[in-house]
């Protein structure tokens, strides 16, 4: 399907960046970039940020508002009208119907485990691809890139058969491995991009200090990846948290199902039974912990960045 030349000359960054100007290793960057003083063009920033922020907050406000309406209210009032009363029983319904309590634990387990595997394996794979010149590095990166091009409408059938042969059907481990695998290409791709921007003296200096390559990787490179690592972790996690089709395909027992399958039923009840409020309530229930997690993680990113910068 592709000629060998395609594989040899992969569509990925393959030229090492020119060496950055040597920097005194101890000085490094400031632990945290200071807040820039206000400049007139910041107005433009605020305007842009404000617009995007307003749109996303209104989306949540809308979802929340609808989750407080009855279905009749939802359909008979303009979509933007405020709900008549606080109607928390939609939440109770959603919790019961979508088996959120049961599915939630499954989702946490599956998403966390697959994200962890996907990120850890990607970091290890990205390092040699980004920082070590070897014969097939370009081709291998090309293979990972191809992983981003899954025509899942077709590959799902052979995937199902191989999962069956491996005894991984209807198993959370199977789903975890599939998710981790489908996170890998993106993670590797992004991390290679990040790692290439690090100055090459880092390794050289470590080598002079007598550190082996594995140790150099763990103690010098890894800490510098803070923000990049956090971003791919968040993105992988979200993907795994929201993924629906492979879960539907590979998990058959209700007690093993993740949340999107529960939400899916709520969505179908909305489509074929006008049960919108419950779906929106279910959405709010499942989104809130993720948002909270993200808020907390954001601090970690900042911390990670600071720590990385200090060590560098």
């Amino acid at each position: 399907m592709t000629s060998s030349t395609d594989m040899k000359a992969p569509a990925v960054p393959d030229v090492p960046p020119p060496p950055a100007p040597p920097r005194p290793p101890k000085k490094a960057r400031d632990s945290r970039r200071p807040r820039a003083p206000f400049r007139p063009y910041h107005l433009f920033f605020y305007l842009l940020l404000g617009a995007v922020a307003v749109s996303s907050i209104s989306a949540y406000a809308w979802v929340f508002n609808v989750s407080m309406k009855t279905n009749g209210e939802f359909i008979s009032t303009p979509p933007w009208q405020i709900a008549e009363t606080w109607r928390w029983d939609n939440y109770v319904n959603a919790w019961d119907r979508a088996h959120i309590g049961m599915f939630f634990g499954n989702s946490v387990l599956i998403s966390v485990a697959s994200t962890l595997i996907g990120v850890v394996l990607a970091v290890f794979a990205a390092y040699p691809l980004a920082r070590i010149a070897f014969r097939f590095s370009g081709a291998l990166l090309g293979v990972f890139l191809m992983g981003l091009m899954i025509p899942w409408m077709v590959t799902f059938a052979p995937l199902y058969l191989i999962m069956r042969d491996l005894g991984l059907l209807d198993s959370q481990l199977g789903l975890i491995l599939v998710y981790a695998t489908y996170n890998l290409p993106f993670n590797v791709f992004v991390l290679v991009g990040f790692m290439k921007t690090l100055p090459y003296e880092l390794e050289e200096a470590a080598a002079v200090d007598g550190a082996g390559p594995a140790r150099t990787f763990v103690s010098v490179i890894l800490p510098l990846l803070g923000p990049g690592l956090a971003s791919v972790a968040i993105i992988s996690f979200l993907q795994n948290w929201n993924e629906f089709f492979y879960a539907l395909l590979l998990i058959h027992s209700p007690e093993k199902m993740p949340l999107p399958l529960g939400l899916f039923q709520l969505g179908q009840a909305a489509d074929y039974g006008t049960n919108w409020s419950t779906m929106f309530a279910g959405m709010m229930i499942t989104v809130t912990p993720v948002l909270l997690g993200f808020a907390l993680l954001q601090k970690q990113i900042t911390k990670g960045l600071t720590a990385g910068a200090l060590k560098g």
Partner: peptide, 8 residues
Amino acid sequence: LPAVGTPS
């Protein structure tokens, strides 16, 4: 055919 929680 009916989704979870529907009267059907």
